[in-house]
Design a protein around this nucleic acid. Structure first.
Length: 988
RNA sequence: GCCGGGAUGGUGGAAUAGGUAGACACGCAAGACUUAAAAUCUUGUGGCCAUAUCGGCCGUGCGGGUUCGAUUCCCGCUCCUGGUACCA
């Protein structure tokens, strides 16, 4: 008897939705059968689905990471069902600061930490059941990968940007032009200070001079840039790491210092990067952010003479039409010119100001508009238009990195100049007609006054005339300026790609291509050297041997964005050792058809990738010049922290023994009490309850104490691990074992439950609100996780993670399972034809899914699945005609259960090789429509009418309705609006 | 500061061309099953008023506007949030 009942139990367990078994089975199947192996197949249309490159952090994957991956996986699987050859790869952007920071602290080589992190990430990702072709995994820190990052760097070094061809060309072709005609006719992107030379001069240059000159043209070059230098740490810090002029770690002073750094001439591509945005299908805000970042402005460059000096100040202005309104010049504090122009009588104040101002970060200076600061240099400039002498000031609102680092100030027509002039009592001279009542005004399009030769003109003509004047006199020109700056390409760090560059006579040369990859050397410590060199300065034999000697190699490494700027090409041909990716393969796969990732990459990664792609396109090694055709930006998943509230031990009492310390009670009150404590609304009974509890516990813990009373009831909130809280209810047993000090915790419950408080914060370890997918998968399975992440809301939206609704999704999957099984838990599907209602339920879902897929609206798809399954359950549908397409429909979202049902339905292959069911409108045709009838825009009645009715017939039916007549009070409506199939609105 | 994004019941969200606000789900409440609990199932559930069955008023962050009709469009705010060039 007992054996029999055990057997029954076993059978019923077998027949229930056993996600653990199912998911393991199918993940194994996909791996063994190579289901997601992608290969070039010119007979099928391709679809390239890409997720943003993850950095494998030590904390592992949290539930926010897979959000985008699940979405792209759904699209990928959907496209497979639609007959596409899908490339859906995954890999790791494995160079980065956190591993290096960890290495500094522990001495552990970053490669080891990185490897461990990747192993963990991969394991976590595999548990979610993504349709990734894992054979294509790449890692940026792998020498076989960064060999090609270095190779691309070498191509950039060997190229210049030619304006006539409007593309990058080989530096060799530039050299041959120099040899024949000098640089007079060459229209190319180069440094501002590039001199003009003839062919004869070029040919007479020494090797060193030639190389110096070429460096002014190369697409990657050495330039002096300002960095946050922290002498105590001996290193350069990011703006993030600097707080109010001190390092965030350690609180050491940070100064702005000029340093020779490698740069990339991304500005050469500024216009093409701008134009390219028109071709790609990205959200308008992201495009807008890139446009603003590139910041094209059309204006003029003006040279101002300095009185009594041969120095000149170059300014860029978009409003040269206001030049007669210039009342002072302002220089950036970090510009050399600023210090040079300080006169003796101003030296004390001006130099003190410069020293303070230049060490404020750019971001601080930009955000802080309230404190106006500056200093007069004592020097005067001469306005070339009217010969007026104007003061030269130093002001921290002028940034060295933008434009020329100097502005011509027109207080009357620029707000910041106006505030500055007001503050220092400088002249404000109006040159555009209008009212100055509310301070300055831009006056674009206004009549120009008080402006010598341009008085009486309007903006456009005035600018034209000014530019002509400037060019005639050789003291300026019309100019297009970009806000975007050249991208600094070196980091004084260890864990990055070494630059394939050595130095001879202080000038950079490329190593030979056959010597790639230049492998990252071993070092004893991951810190800078004692004399402030980057960590690579510690490497032994970090030199390059050539035929004529041995030379030092570059000590800096590449930034994080180097490896991630081209990885989408490597996925197409990840193992190729002779080229970064075979042309035939890059031609087949082409641009990424769907790129999902965060909008935080809008102006970094997404711009650099476009830049490198355009460059590779110019080289002719790829055929696309925009890498990401369609992009969706997923919103960040924030953490949802839970709190417990501990009663503060504010008691009175006395100790018998002075040396004895009281053991303080750990008593936590549930949220309901907490709310009342906060708003001081505790009833006297509730107060007594808390006081008694405190007293009781205290006496138990401290029998030798005399205890009088709890002075007042106050609590302190404490983060509690969200993983031991379910639907805001605390698991008391798990809480007691969470930390040793909580073992004796006591609780004041409401209705027998401890309810926690909650707050939305960033997901972080210290807030105990990190939820990793493993726990969810353990409890509910990967299919539930996938569905739930989608169900949480629109992909693009920022949203806090909470598992409050996850039960509903799990229940849904069980309902799906039950559709295919009878009450006894046996697989039971009928071959009988489906009813009209059943087909309608199915086809409504098919239609909705297709629409949602086109809009990337995944949350609504999950809802429509639920509706469909609820309807089919109510209809007790078990027809193969419905259940077979339903399994396919659900398979992109919940692939494991779908595969299992598919095989139960008698199919031998993977469901991914099946065909997406075709939508048939005929099942959805309705003959009637329930019209909402509105009176003055408010819904007052509903009317079920045939859709075939004409407008007058609808009106007649509406007016006859009793509810309507009540509102009309016998009068005729003033206006009748009828939209057939939509609405009736009567205006009374 | 500048450049982006967001705000709808107790909660996540739906309303895809300006046309029934609150689909779907969670939670909660009541009931069924059970010795009991869990699980499951059924019903109800924006707020206020009400003759609590007819029904009415309010309601999509705030203040205005356009419209027969606004969560949706326009103008002005508030708060939260991403980026701001060495986090990736």
């Amino acid at each position: 008897m007992q054996a029999f009942s055990q057997k029954i139990k076993k059978i019923s367990i077998m027949a229930e939705y056993n996600f653990r078994e199912i998911e393991q089975k199918w993940q194994g199947y996909w791996k063994n059968k190579g289901t997601f192996k992608a290969e070039v197949d010119t007979n099928r249309p391709k679809f390239y689905s890409l997720d943003m490159f993850p950095y494998p952090s030590g904390a592992g994957l949290h539930v926010g990471h897979p959000l985008g991956y699940i979405a792209s996986d759904i699209v990928s699987r959907f496209k497979m069902l639609k007959g596409f050859n899908v490339l859906h790869p995954m890999g790791y952007d494995s160079f980065g600061l956190p591993a290096e920071q960890y290495a500094i602290q522990t001495g552990q080589h970053p490669a080891i930490t990185t490897e461990q992190n990747i192993t963990r990430y991969t394991e976590q990702l595999k548990n979610i059941g993504f349709a990734f072709d894992w054979d294509r995994e790449v890692r940026t820190s792998d020498p076989s990968y960064y060999k090609w990052t270095q190779w691309i760097f070498m191509q950039l070094f060997s190229s210049y940007y030619d304006h006539d061809a409007d593309k990058a060309l080989s530096i060799d072709s530039l050299i041959s032009r120099f040899e024949k005609e000098g640089n007079g006719k060459v229209k190319a992107v180069c440094d501002d200070d590039t001199p003009t030379f003839s062919a004869a001069e070029w040919n007479s240059f020494s090797e060193k001079e030639k190389q110096e000159m070429l460096l002014k043209y190369r697409l990657t070059f050495l330039a002096e840039t300002t960095v946050n230098w922290c002498p105590a740490l001996g290193t350069v810090l990011s703006n993030d790491e600097v707080k109010d002029g001190f390092s965030e770690r350690g609180g050491h002073p940070v100064e702005r210092k000029k340093m020779m750094q490698w740069s990339m001439r991304i500005t050469a591509y500024a216009d093409r990067l701008l134009q390219g945005l028109e071709k790609v299908d990205w959200s308008e805000p992201i495009k807008e952010m890139q446009r603003n970042w590139i910041g094209k402005s059309i204006g003029a460059e003006v040279l101002f003479d300095v009185k009594g000096s041969d120095k000149k100040i170059k300014v860029f202005t978009t409003r040269v039409d206001t030049i007669y309104g210039v009342t002072y010049l302002a220089l950036a504090p970090e510009s050399d010119l600023a210090s040079e122009l300080v006169t003796d009588d101003q030296r004390d104040t001006a130099e003190a100001y410069i020293n303070v101002a230049k060490n404020r970060s750019e971001r601080e200076r930009m955000s802080d508009v309230k404190t106006i600061s500056g200093a007069f240099t004592g020097s005067y400039a001469i306005n070339p238009f009217n010969g007026e002498e104007i003061q030269i000031w130093v002001a921290d609102y002028v940034l060295a990195g933008y434009g020329t680092g100097a502005v011509m100030a027109v207080p009357a027509h620029d707000e910041r100049d106006y505030n500055f002039a007001k503050h220092f009592g400088l002249e404000i001279r109006q040159v555009i007609k209008g009212s100055m009542e509310n301070g300055s005004f831009p006056g674009k399009g206004g009549l120009i006054i008080n402006s010598g030769m341009i008085s009486g003109l309007y903006m456009k003509d005035a600018m034209q005339k000014c530019i002509e004047f400037l060019e005639e006199k050789g003291i300026g020109k019309g100019k297009i300026q970009f806000r975007m700056r050249d991208a600094i390409f070196t980091r004084q760090r260890y864990w990055g790609e070494p630059l394939p560059v050595y130095f001879k006579d202080g000038l950079p040369y490329l190593i030979e291509e056959k010597d790639l990859p230049l492998v990252l050397p071993e070092v004893d410590k991951y810190l800078p050297t004692e004399d402030g060199e980057p960590p690579l300065g510690r490497a032994k034999d970090w030199t390059y041997k050539t035929a004529d000697g041995e030379y030092p190699l570059e000590l800096s490494t590449m930034p994080g964005w180097a490896g991630s700027s081209w990885y989408f090409f490597r996925y197409m041909d990840p193992k190729n050792d002779s080229v970064f990716a075979d042309k035939a393969k890059t031609d087949y796969w082409g641009a990424v058809d769907l790129y999902i990732g965060g909008s935080e990459h809008a102006t970094g990664h997404l711009l650099y990738s476009r830049f490198w792609t355009k460059f590779l396109y110019d080289l002719g090694v790829v055929s696309i010049d925009e890498p990401f055709q369609k992009m969706i930006n997923q919103g960040m998943i924030q953490g949802r922290s839970n709190f417990v509230y501990r009663i503060k031990p504010l008691f009175t009492g006395s100790k018998e023994n002075e040396s004895e310390k009281a053991i303080l009670p750990m008593i936590f009150v549930s949220k309901g009490y907490q709310d009342k404590i906060e708003s001081d609304k505790l009833s006297s009974e509730e107060k007594k309850l808390i006081e008694d509890k405190f007293k009781e516990v205290f006496k138990r813990l401290n029998p030798s104490y005399s205890y009088e009373s709890l002075q007042k009831i106050e609590t302190s909130a404490m983060h509690v691990d969200v993983n031991i809280v379910h639907n805001d209810q605390l698991n008391l047993d798990k809480f007691k074992t969470w930390r040793p000090d909580l073992a004796d915790a006591e609780f004041i419950l409401e209705d027998g439950k401890y309810i926690c408080g909650s707050e939305v914060e960033k997901m972080s370890k210290s807030k105990y609100n990190v939820v990793n997918p493993d726990d969810i998968i353990e409890r509910y399975g990967a299919d539930t996780l996938r569905l739930y992440e989608m169900f949480l809301g629109p992909l693009e939206q920022f949203k806090p993670w909470n598992t409050n609704g996850i039960d509903g999704v799990f229940k849904f999957l069980r309902k799906v399972w039950n559709l295919y099984h009878n009450a006894a838990g046996e697989f039971a599907v009928s071959d009988a034809p489906a009813s009209k209602e059943e087909m309608k339920a199915l086809h409504k879902a098919i239609k909705k899914l297709e629409e949602d897929m086109a809009n990337y609206s995944f949350n609504t798809s999950v809802s429509s699945f639920m509706i469909c399954v609820n309807e089919l359950t109510a209809l007790k549908c078990n027809k193969r005609e419905v259940l077979e397409p339903l399994a396919i429909l659900i398979s992109p979202y919940a692939p494991h259960i779908a595969e299992e049902l598919w095989s139960l339905l008698g199919h031998s292959g993977s469901i991914t090789t099946s065909k997406f069911p075709e939508f048939k409108e005929e099942y959805l045709v309705e003959s009637n429509f329930e019209y909402p009838v509105m009176i003055n825009g408010k819904m007052r009645a509903k009317l079920d009418l045939p859709l075939s009715l004409s407008v007058p017939e609808i009106e007649k039916a509406a007016l006859e309705d009793v509810h309507v007549q009540k509102w009309l009070e016998g009068k005729a409506p003033k206006k009748v609006i009828i939209v057939p199939g939509k609405i009736v609105n009567l205006v009374v």
